[in-house]
């Protein structure tokens, strides 16, 4: 029996990378979908994760907590994680809460994938 459509989050694979698209409001529900998708991709052997926030207007603290969990899981799996297309307000929020010390930011999905191709160095070399 197939899972209900609402449980899915949009994503695509590019080589060993997976791009996961966050919804307009990153709260508990949508956050957990992203978390599940990230874990699924990692279990499938994915080496790098890009979470794209192009459609995200607002991230709440539960969403942030879940993202912290994703960062933790990625680190433990030895996978790279990049957040792309994060709006200014959300970047401020991430900075305030210390997320940007643990994850790289890219202007958009293309830049994230480009960076991944060039990837060899630790994530601190990335900037936004």
């Amino acid at each position: 029996m197939a899972e209900p459509a609402s449980l899915f989050v949009r994503s695509r694979c590019v080589g060993t990378a997976a791009v996961i698209y966050a919804s307009d409001y990153l709260n508990k529900l949508s956050g957990e979908r992203i978390e599940r998708e990230c874990k699924r991709q990692l279990e499938c052997g994915c080496q790098t994760l890009v979470i794209d926030f192009r459609g995200t207007e607002l991230v709440n603290s539960i969403g942030v907590s879940i993202l912290l969990g994703v960062i933790d899981v990625a680190e433990k799996s030895g996978a790279q994680l990049i957040f792309s297309d994060v709006n200014t307000e959300t970047i401020q929020l991430f900075e305030m809460l210390g997320l940007t010390r643990h994850v790289a930011l890219a202007k958009d999905e293309d830049e994230a994938l480009t960076l991944l191709n060039e990837f060899a160095a630790p994530p601190q070399s990335f900037g936004h």
């Binding site: 709440n60 603290s61 539960i62 942030v64 907590s65 879940i66 912290l68 969990g69 960062i71 933790d72 929020l93 305030m96 809460l97 210390g98 010390r101 643990h102």
Partner: peptide, 18 residues
């Protein structure tokens, strides 16, 4: 801030700080 494991394990607590 930055204490990822604590914060992610205890998902609340960030709200008031924010």
């Amino acid at each position: 801030s930055g204490e990822i494991q604590e914060a992610s394990a205890n998902r609340r607590g960030l709200g008031l700080k924010m």
